[in-house]
Design a protein around this nucleic acid. Structure first.
Lengths: 332, 332
DNA sequence: GGCCGGATTGTGAACGCAAACATGCTTGCC
DNA sequence: GGCAAGCATGTTTGCGTTCACAATCCGGCC
């Protein structure tokens, strides 16, 4: 920086002012400085800046398994939102939240690097523990966190999603709906299950036993092989689209036709869901919304300096395709 | 840090030594310092450290579309490899490499933050331009980059992948193989196409006209609707698994049975590919390998301080399932 | 004509850390 | 017994930036 200053014939402070867009710099000086910067190929040292100011406009994201469609979409959404808010993003990948040592390292890193705030993609219980490693001064927003964490949070309304899915199947004429849930450590799984139960209850339907899968097609297939042998099972609400795919395969192997014999509905609306065989009816989550909301909550905290626990809900929407019998529209 | 020093009754330098694991610190002093650190909840300021040392063990990753399975798996793989090499990772998400302003911002950020090295997930031509924004001193490794960039690179051997896929279909008795390629900006698309052509040539088969899709099931479906109407088309090599899914759907709608009427093979082996209907034969890429190799190349450069152009190839493997007729094993 | 205020620039210090050098102390060896 | 060699620790300096303050210059006003 002093090189630039010397070259432009000004003091280092003036260079700093130009760099930061301070008002009281004459036009001629500014152009001289900018020219010197260009000639020398100078780029300022962000570490020194952070050190001197004590703040940064870097947002840290802690994410667990970014190969899954949900988490990766969220990270992408947050990234895009951050870009338009002129914040930059650094993503820390945690192998699994249970591996506390690893997540501690990631969080420490992010904090030590001077992240202004953190977004936790925290869809599992263990994430609560990792969150506690964050020092008090740093604002946090969780995505898919729990209310009892007392933290600003944005979630998809998974409960309503479960409700929508189950009602849709009931409206198609099924007497009850079977549910293959996701891993119980995930908050979303539990909320969808609650929605499912609530929809059954309001229709006076009896809740059949619940199966539990991971998020993979493979685990869906395992569950599906059991369900396919149960003649009463004619309507299935699957944990997500890939689980639904696995179930569909198991049903097909058992000779049960979709949707004639069995109706099935997924969750997520992955891009390829409409091309499954048959095309999967599912519940879509609006990930772009999540990104925007999460960043808005974070910026609020940064601006006010107050740690809020405000939360936002993103509404899922039903995407009706071909895996549910008699696609009568459910009343809005 | 001086607080800790005062508390432990030593100088700040001794605290620094403990923190960095320097040899000449007595055991008693060390424990006293560590106790003081714990009591005060002290965490060192990484910016100051980077400023003072001039180096950091942070590697930056520049990635484009991390919602796609390929890129997201690579980032994950690199992340895991970095964790075990005790490096930390910050991922910069570029919306698209063409948006030069955006990618310039990301790269600048990463460099200014003091990244010791950069990994470019650079599967498209436009990435070459973004790479040129990186100052000379910073080592780079590309993933799926081009040889003419003169840069250390690790790629999946897409050419061999195309070769394997096409040979497999020919070995199943098909007279020729049709190819639905990915976007032409992607290097992988072109390499797979080359492999396809080479395999056809070595078998004396005539190359039919080539269709071009994106990476999505939707675009595969569009291509599939045309291919399904061509009676001669009995074997298809698809750009990736999702494209294959779209094609399969179009074929099914047209009443063409898989694999009886048409054989099809995908690329990637996404986790759910085995649960498509029917289960998809495909070419798997070993992403974990990519992560390890990329990091090894980067560490080499960091250690030697020399910008190398060494490159590594990761071999794909054929995963045989149910979408190719007469699953005779091809000779190894 | 002198004084005030705003615009523009410069000066010194501080941010938190590690590196280089300096110091006192212990050990081992002839 | 004395000297060299190492160990354990302290002191000083500088990394590149911003901040608080000071300084200069200019025009306008009483």
């Amino acid at each position: 920086m002093s090189d630039v200053a010397a070259r432009a014939g000004v003091s280092h402070q003036t260079v700093s002012r130009v760099l930061n867009g301070h008002p009281h710099v004459s036009a001629t000086t500014r152009t001289r400085v900018l020219a010197a910067i260009a000639e020398l190929g100078y780029r300022r040292n962000l570490s020194a800046r952070v050190l001197a100011t004590g703040r940064s406009n870097v947002v840290g994201v802690v994410a667990q398994n970014t190969t899954l469609y949900g988490p990766s979409s969220m990270v992408q959404a947050i990234g895009e939102a951050a870009l338009s808010a002129d914040l930059s993003l650094t993503v820390g990948h945690v192998a699994g939240y249970d591996a506390t040592a690893a997540s501690r390292r990631i969080v420490e890193r992010l904090v030590q690097q001077g992240a202004a705030g953190l977004v936790f993609i925290a869809p599992v219980d263990a994430a609560g523990e990792a969150m506690r490693l964050v020092p008090d001064g740093v604002p946090i927003v969780t995505v898919d966190g729990l209310p009892e964490w007392q933290c600003a949070n944005v979630s998809v309304d998974q409960y309503t999603g479960g409700l929508l899915a189950t009602r849709h199947l009931l409206a198609a004429g099924h007497r009850t709906v079977w549910h293959v849930a996701g891993p119980e450590q995930w908050h979303g799984s539990r909320a969808r299950e609650d929605g499912w139960r609530a929809a059954l209850a309001e229709a006076g339907a009896i809740a059949p036993p619940m199966a539990r899968a991971g998020w993979s097609a493979a685990s869906g297939y395992q569950c599906g092989r059991m369900l396919a042998r149960i003649p009463d099972c004619t309507a299935i609400f699957a944990a997500n689209d890939h689980v639904a795919l696995g179930i569909m395969r198991a049903l097909a192997e058992q000779g049960r036709r979709i949707p004639d014999d069995v109706s099935i509905i997924g969750f997520d609306d992955v891009p390829e869901a409409g091309y499954f065989h048959p095309a999967l009816t599912t519940i879509r989550q609006e990930f772009a919304d999540i990104g925007r909301q999460a960043l808005r909550l974070l910026l609020d905290q940064l601006a006010t300096g107050v740690k809020s626990a405000e939360s936002a809900l993103v509404e899922p929407v039903l995407i009706s395709r071909d895996t549910v019998k008699t696609p009568e529209r459910i009343p809005a």
